[in-house]
Every structure is written in C-alpha cells, then in structure tokens.
C-alpha cells in the first residue's frame, strides 16, 4: 500500500530538514521525501498548513502499570502518547512492584505486548524496591531487556552504591538515569523555596537539593568514565554543572521538560495543584538560562507525563 502525504511542513532534525514537501510511504516505509512527488497512492493525505514530524521519543514517562491502574495504564498512556505524536516512550520503574527484577520486567513486557499502542521501552530500577539500600541484579535486568536504569522518584543517597551502579551500567552498556534530589534538603517541600513558598506558607524545595546531587552524580560518572543522564533538570545551577562537565569530556546528558522553560513558580501562587510538581517550577532566572545557548547542551526533553488521580492531587506527590 502506498500513502502520500502532501504539502506538509516536514521537520526532521536528523536529516537537517525543515521545508514544505511531500512524503511517500510504501509498504510501511518512507520511500521518498521531496517536492511535488507524483505517485499513484491508495491514500493521499493533504497536510497543507500542518507540521509533519518523525515519531517522537519521550524518554521519561510514568505509565503506572502494574500497581496503579486507577491512575494510568500502558494502554491509556500509550494512546495519549500517540495523540501527541509520540511513538516511543521509556517507562520509569516506579511501579508496584518496582521494575527491579527480571521477573517483574517479564510481567511488564507481557502487559506491553498485550496492550501497548506505541513502542514502550523499559527502565529498570537501580536498587531493589527503589529504596536505595541494595542494588538490583543489573546484569539480569539488561539481559531481560531494559535499556536504562534509574530509581526515578528517588535518588540513590549512598555514594558507594551509586558508584557501583554506575560501574555496572557502564559495563553492561546501559544508561543510568539520575533523579537528582537530596531529600534531606527538599524535606517534603512542595514549591520552589523562596518568596513563593513564603507567600504561600508552604514548605519549599531548594535548588541545592537538586544541583548538589547533580554535582555528585556527574563527578562519580566522570571519574568512572561512565555515561550518565540527568532527568528533569529544573534550575540553572544544574545546567551549568552539566555543561562544564560536558566541556571537559564527561559522558553526561540531560533533559528538561517543557514546563521548566515555559512556566515559573508564579503559576502556583493561586494554589493551582496542576502547577505543583517535582522538581518544582523555579524562578524567572532559571527560565532565562534555559533559553540561552546552554540549551544546546541538553540532549533531550521529556514531557514528564505522569497521571495523577484528581482526588490525590491535593495531598500527595512523589
């Protein structure tokens, strides 16, 4: 079967392409990209005035299954992803049970096989139960098919354990994704620490709670020559640490999410819990840094897509 997409603005960074042209698809594969393609296709899509993108990859999603199917499932989450043009997702391991063993990964793979609407890649847990106490069998996770490991939602507090995990990930050739947060500093905070937290009378989350942990993780990875990826970076200090390390040749990448460079902490001043997230929305100056050239050192952006039940918004976060 042939499909012809006509007159769309085709944006394809991998091929350095951004222009209005046509795309011809034959038997499920793109066979031609160019102006005024003449072909007799069974289906022609008029994309005039529209943007045509390659399938997007969201490398940081929470699909909640197994364990919290009341919030989201593999099926509902991947359906939503497709609606937004995202065709591949990397699911974080903070499910119940956590993705910390080959058996649990197997269980999830079966659910994906049965119900996923988009491509789903699995991120395993660095430590058992994501508790930061005992390493998962990372070799076995890799063998079962995870492409990355992370304790997302929690940071590995022990330097020693983090070091061992980085070594194993390096040797197994999988990416370690760091959720950088020192919880003794963020201490059950809910909004950015500063005037906003003071005005609202809410506990604040300092930037230090993020960037000090970023600094530690980047330093460990650099020493071990291990690749590391820092998830959902929210403040300029973290970006600076990462950019400097990258310049020195460290194998560090990071991502941020659209809300961190389009919204500031002021959005939360009306106690709108839709604007409450972890890490929290930061100040105007953090927004500014992300708009500068330093953004080029960020290698990915995620949606932070995670579903919350409406009635749990008021009281919970994690």
């Amino acid at each position: 079967m042939k499909i012809l997409i006509k007159n769309g603005r085709v944006v394809d960074p991998a091929n350095n392409l951004d222009e209005v042209c046509d795309i011809l698809i034959e038997s499920g594969k793109i066979s031609k990209v160019g102006k005024n393609i003449k072909a007799s296709a069974e289906k022609t899509i008029d994309a005039t005035g529209k943007i045509v993108l390659p399938g997007l990859v969201d490398m940081h999603v929470h699909l909640r299954e197994p364990g919290r199917e009341d919030k989201e499932t593999i099926s509902s989450g991947t359906k939503a992803a497709l609606k937004g043009g995202v065709t591949s997702v990397l699911v974080m391991p903070n499910t119940n049970p956590a993705m910390d063993s080959a058996e649990n990964i197997k269980l999830l793979q079966q659910i994906i096989k049965d119900s996923a609407k988009a491509d789903v890649f699995i991120c395993g847990a660095i430590t058992k139960g994501r508790l930061g106490q005992e390493l998962s069998d990372i070799k076995a996770l890799k063998k079962q098919g995870v492409v990355a490991i992370s304790d997302d939602g929690a940071s590995v507090d022990s330097d020693k354990l983090m070091e061992e995990a980085l070594k194993l990930a390096r040797d197994e050739n999988i990416l370690l994704i760091s959720h950088a947060e020192d919880k003794t500093l963020s201490n059950k905070g809910v909004v950015n620490l500063g005037l906003t937290s003071t005005r609202l009378g809410l506990k604040g989350i300092s930037k230090e709670s993020e960037y000090k942990r970023v600094a530690r993780d980047v330093e460990l990875a650099e020493k071990l020559k291990a690749p590391i990826h820092i998830a959902h970076v929210s403040c300029k200090e973290s970006v600076e640490i990462i950019a400097k390390a990258k310049k020195r040749g460290a194998k560090v990448t990071c991502e941020t999410a659209p809300h961190y460079f389009s919204l500031t902490e002021e959005a939360v001043l009306s106690y709108d819990t839709n604007m409450k997230m972890n890490p929290p929305l930061r100040s105007k100056s953090d927004l500014g840094v992300r708009k500068t050239k330093k953004i080029s050192s960020l290698s990915a952006r995620n949606s932070g897509l995670s579903a919350w039940k409406l009635n749990s918004l008021w009281q919970s976060r994690s």
Partner: peptide, 26 residues
C-alpha cells in the same frame, strides 16, 4: 492545617468562606 485550604474550598462552593487560619499561610 493546610495552607491554601480556604482558597480551594471557596472555589468549590457558592456560599461565603472566611479563612480562620490556613496552615502557615494567612
């Protein structure tokens, strides 16, 4: 005891809400 509780309640009811103290807020 939660900051913002009075504001949230006021958004969801038509009757008047008077804040007699919410968390550390006001």
């Amino acid at each position: 005891n939660y900051s913002g509780a009075a504001a949230m309640l006021a958004r969801h009811v038509n009757l008047s809400v008077v804040n007699a103290g919410d968390g550390w807020h006001e």
